[in-house]
Design a protein around this nucleic acid. Structure first.
Length: 578
RNA sequence: GCGCUGGUAGCUCAAUUGGAUAGAGCGACAGACUACGGAUCUGUAGGUUAGGGGUUCGACUCCUCUCCGGCGCGCCA
């Protein structure tokens, strides 16, 4: 849409004595396609010209001369607006035509060429299974990484694992106790969670155990072989389980992306040195801090009074490391908005350290997930592992897959479906869960309900997948190669034009998703595209895609294929199987 | 108290970043398959956009005050 908005602005600019940029910024899409395809509001000219907007619109429209066979077929006054009507054939060529000519390139852009972005996301504490709430950062981050990739950026995905800290000392205590009875106990995220809960049940009020855990962690920090051995087992097994679950959701970090907190242990002293050399480090209540009072923030603690570092220090080190390593143009942290203050402090400290790239770091925050009424009792509740209020992400996926399977069994009409029911249920069920993450803008809190996350109808992932399947099925039934240039002249139906307009907006949706770090915009777009198509499709009395007229059919199937390509691309961005 | 953030139909959310008649899904009700996949589609009901004031030709959108919710505010992450 931006390109024809631009063209309309250029024809209008000299007539209103403004630059094309100014005019372009003012132009809007009319609420109703019959009014035109792109409009210019005349209100702001009223004062200057001492005339009423509708009159200005009429005058302006009269002065516009459109060349025969050009982009626009008409420029007409509609109330206080001057509206342009695009030539459908031209529009079709620029959308479906482009998609069909190079299907692999459709949806991609080179706008981000030469730029590098770091996307840090998911970042769970390991040694326990992922909870549902982890879906937020994980899916948001994975989708954003794909948005940036398709926009031409080089993307580095980082999973800042919580793989260090006294928790590991606690696990070692519990593990060692078990070891006496079960020398070769199996380790996975669920058994680790059991160890964790076991430790806390036993340690409640028992200072000896707490000391023991601290001492195990100290041994780990000092490089004690047994502690390191156990830590490695815990970490490796956790990561293994993590990757299995990620794979189901189409999340794939590169190996270099698994740099958890432990990775930065040996880099923090140097970071602290640099902070000190800048004269930023102060002693406060026994701790070493960077004072941020001038910026109305509490101090950023760099070293605790016992000399240990804290997560702020690790985030500073990781930021330095990432910039050294990748020279990023942008660094995104996909982390819940609880951490808002923390990141403001970190970015400010980086700035004070003299890094001008600090301004390229951005906290992409999102609202928290709470459990809606009915999930744990009658009222809403927040998650709490200790109180047993956890829902594992894996269980959510499994339940959705089960529900999808029932639906597929009910509707299966070919052997192809029944033979692939495992894979299909997985794609649809997981798709439903993943998509539910994109049904609202990220800043809103999410109220988890089974009903919402298992939704297979209406505004849902399966709705889009279903529409894609339907389009694919039509292409199979058609069974012929499309002509290199379909006769778009035959495609003058208003509903068809609306679809071409919609296709022209896909690139804009991706661009906004990038600019706002908001993947939900892609989801909203896809839902609208599907709704438009399905409406036309079900109007079987007036409009059929496959007809007796070969030329007409090939043009209509060209549109079908272009929509299919768009849905496939968009689903891919969001991490759903098509 | 201060900071961030949200408040739109019974419920869950959109709204071209200040434009034209505030739109979808779920739920309710009434409908649509002898032909391209009914996981779909059509229609009806449902709104003082939390509330007041302001700016503007024009406000869900910007400013301001108030109310309600979420999160955060020194050695956990």
């Amino acid at each position: 849409m931006t390109w024809f908005k631009r063209l309309a602005a250029e024809t209008l600019a000299p007539l209103v004595k403004k630059t094309a940029d100014e005019v372009e910024a003012m132009m809007v899409k009319p609420p109703n396609p019959e009014m035109g395809d792109i409009g210019f509001p005349c209100f702001s000219l009223a004062k200057e010209l001492k005339s009423a907007p509708p009159k200005i619109a009429a005058d302006l429209a009269g002065k516009i001369s459109l060349p025969e066979g050009g982009v626009f077929t008409e420029a007409k006054p509609v109330g206080p607006y001057v509206n342009f009507v695009i030539d459908t054939v031209y529009l079709a060529e620029k959308t479906a035509g482009v998609a069909l000519a190079d299907p692999k390139a459709w949806g991609n852009s080179t706008d981000g060429k030469g730029k590098t972005v770091i996307v840090e996301y998911s970042s769970p504490n390991i040694a326990k299974p992922l909870g549902v709430h982890h879906i937020r950062s994980t899916m948001l981050g994975a989708a954003l990484a794909r948005v940036y990739k398709t926009r031409g950026w080089k993307v580095i995905e980082m999973n800042h694992l919580g793989d260090w800290g006294t928790t590991f000392g606690q696990l070692m205590v519990a593990y060692k106790q078990q070891e006496k009875e079960h020398p070769n106990q199996a380790v996975d995220v669920h058994s680790l969670l059991k160890l964790y809960l076991q430790y806390h049940a036993a340690a409640d009020g028992d200072e000896n155990l707490a000391d023991e855990a601290r001492s195990w962690f100290k041994r780990l920090e000092d490089g004690d072989p047994e502690a390191v051995r156990l830590w490695k087992i815990f970490r490796d097994e956790s990561v293994k389980d993590l990757k299995k679950l990620y794979a189901r959701m189409n999340v794939h970090f590169p190996e270099e992306g698994y740099k958890g907190e432990a990775f930065y242990n040996d880099k923090m002293d140097a970071t602290i040195d640099r902070i000190e050399r800048k004269g930023l480090l102060k002693e406060s209540e026994g701790a070493k801090v960077v004072d941020l009072e001038q910026w109305d923030m509490p101090p950023c603690i760099i070293r605790k009074k016992d000399g240990a570092t804290i997560y702020a220090t690790r985030d500073l080190s990781s930021a330095e490391y990432r910039h050294d390593m990748y020279k990023f143009d942008k660094s995104l942290y996909i982390v819940a908005n609880q951490q808002e203050l923390h990141f403001r402090q970190i970015f400010k400290v980086l700035e004070l350290m003299g890094y001008d790239w600090a301004k390229h770091c951005e906290h992409v925050k999102f609202g928290m997930l709470a459990f809606g009424p009915g999930v744990f009792g009658e009222s809403a509740a927040t998650g709490s592992t200790r109180k047993g209020r956890v829902i594992f992400l894996e269980d959510v996926l499994d339940r959705a897959v089960e529900k999808a399977r029932a639906l597929i069994e009910e509707n299966a009409r070919s052997e192809e479906v029944t033979n692939n029911i495992d894979a299909l249920s997985e794609q649809v069920g997981v798709g439903a869960v993943v998509f539910s993450e994109f049904t609202q803008r990220r800043m809103k809190d999410v109220s988890f309900t089974w009903e919402k996350v298992l939704n297979l109808h209406g505004d849902s992932g399966p709705y889009i997948q279903y529409t894609h399947a339907r389009l694919s099925s039509m292409m199979r039934r058609y069974g012929k190669a499309l002509p290199s240039v379909p006769n778009w002249r035959l495609m003058q139906h208003p509903a068809v034009k609306e679809l071409f307009i919609k296709l022209s907006e896909y690139q804009d949706a991706l661009e906004s998703a990038e600019k706002e770090n908001e993947p939900s915009l892609v989801a909203t777009y896809l839902l609208e595209l599907c709704a438009l198509f399905n409406r036309l499709y079900t109007d079987k009395e007036n409009h059929r895609f496959i007809t007796d007229n070969a030329e007409l059919t090939s043009a209509r199937m060209g549109l079908v294929e272009a929509i299919r390509l768009t849905l496939a691309h968009g689903l891919g961005i969001l991490g759903l199987a098509a």
